[in-house]
Design a protein around this nucleic acid. Structure first.
Lengths: 252, 252
DNA sequence: CGTTACCTTGAATCTCCTCAATACACGTGG
DNA sequence: CCACGTGTATTGAGGAGATTCAAGGTAACG
């Protein structure tokens, strides 16, 4: 089940001038690393909003880095319910689990139109052999991903609804902030209340009522897919804890 | 806050005759890898039941592999509530996050008296430089850990209490099975109902009532720290899904 | 201008939680 | 050997929080 390749794909950017590298918080690459990544990169592709990049249970020949857009990682249960595991943004790596386990253990879907960088799965071995720093980056990425999912688990398992919503809003906002995706204090996200509900283990109805409470208390605003943190401090206090995203060290 | 070293520590086993390597499901090591791991290993230690191996927020000079015993990884929230992230058994690696983030993002505690293999954190760089296979193993370990936490998240976020308990019992049993820790169809575990509750985001009382229901339905038995799967098939069906532990490929 | 996707709100219900009390096993010290 | 404390398991009762059901409402799009 190959992903949908956009025929109108723009010309791929060379890694040297990759916009992600310029974002602060992303580590420097050596000239040698940059050269390797350039050869490691197969190309770029654009996926349409709603289309799937990986299907749970299937394998994939490729690995991706998100260049633009919002991406969803989720699991479907036999009951038909969906657990959202995480949201991916610019700079996030996709498909590591497919590489490790030979098949994906969750699905990955584009929430918005998204542009992805494509990497060769075969050459990963070369990467491990020749690029120690990049190999460590892959471990870093996997470990950080675990840390984020663990934070979500703590929120879902131990916090009441209002605190959970506060937590996930903060989380989404902070991730977008680091990826340079904010419009001032506002953030436009293609995330619905149903996504929030499926992330935090709540019903849509209760999620909606909780969001309304947060709005009434003037902590956040949420309208037309735009998230505004009105009072970030109080929201942080309410959430109880935040994913402390120390120094990111992404793949591209 | 250094871990508690047991003065009565037995002599460390050479890696060549490591009992874990003989367990099926663990990958073979090349002679070269074995030699490296031997030099990578600092020693062994025994920790007492209840003592901490890592504290959230602190760093550590060492990495560990569990040789024997049960280990708990958990997070404490500001509200005082605890989220158990996972249980570690023989062959599981501890402290990777401390290596990656310079500090632990969760705490690690021995549930029983446990014997650990100690590795040098400094020499990890050497590992990445010279031992491609072992470097990949570390990524594998991080990725698998994420996958397990993601499964727990799906259960906690989307399943009712009874299904959650069924899930975690199956999970614990399967992990113990792969580690060769079963006594026939029984498993002696130093896990309390409170641990189960804090893993699955339930109160102790409701956890107890759910376990009772499972016992009444003759699916499991739980008495004196001994877990028996009376009807594994029905339990699996009830749980809805299980962590499909493909080919383990641990560190030692 | 009708369809679709998403958001919103009220009402009834139920799952799960807290409180409270008791029981049981185990280890320690008198 | 028994009394006592501690940690764990058990059970009932009442209530809070979250769910489901049901019915709109609103914005976007062809």
């Amino acid at each position: 089940m190959p992903p949908h390749y956009d025929s109108k794909a723009a010309v791929a950017t060379p890694c040297v001038s990759c916009p992600i590298r310029r974002l602060k918080g992303f580590r420097e690459f050596s000239a040698e690393e940059l050269k390797f990544v350039e050869s490691f990169k197969i190309g770029e592709m654009t996926v349409k909003a709603g289309s799937h990049i990986f299907h749970e249970g299937h394998d994939s020949a490729h690995l991706y880095t998100v260049l633009n857009g919002w991406v969803l990682r989720y699991k479907l249960l036999e009951s038909g319910r969906r657990q959202v595991l995480n949201f991916a943004v610019r700079g996030d790596f996709l498909g590591l689990q497919g590489l490790i386990f030979d098949k994906m253990v969750h699905s990955v879907q584009a929430l918005s139109d998204a542009r992805l960088c494509i990497f060769s799965r075969e050459r990963v071995w070369e990467l491990y052999r020749e690029q120690t720093g990049l190999a460590f980056d892959l471990t870093w990425i996997a470990s950080r991903e675990e840390s984020m999912v663990a934070d979500h688990l703590a929120a879902v398992g131990q916090q009441p609804a209002l605190e959970r919503i506060a937590y996930i809003f903060l989380y989404i906002f902070n991730r977008a902030r680091r990826a340079g995706m904010l419009q001032g204090r506002k953030l436009h996200v293609p995330i619905t209340q149903e996504h929030i509900a499926d992330t935090m283990g709540l019903s849509i109805v209760h999620t909606n009522k909780s969001i309304r409470t947060l709005r009434d208390r003037k902590l956040v605003d949420w309208s037309r897919s735009t998230l505004t943190l009105v009072d970030e401090e109080k929201l942080t206090e309410l959430a109880g804890f935040t994913t402390s995203d120390t120094r990111p060290r992404p793949f591209i």
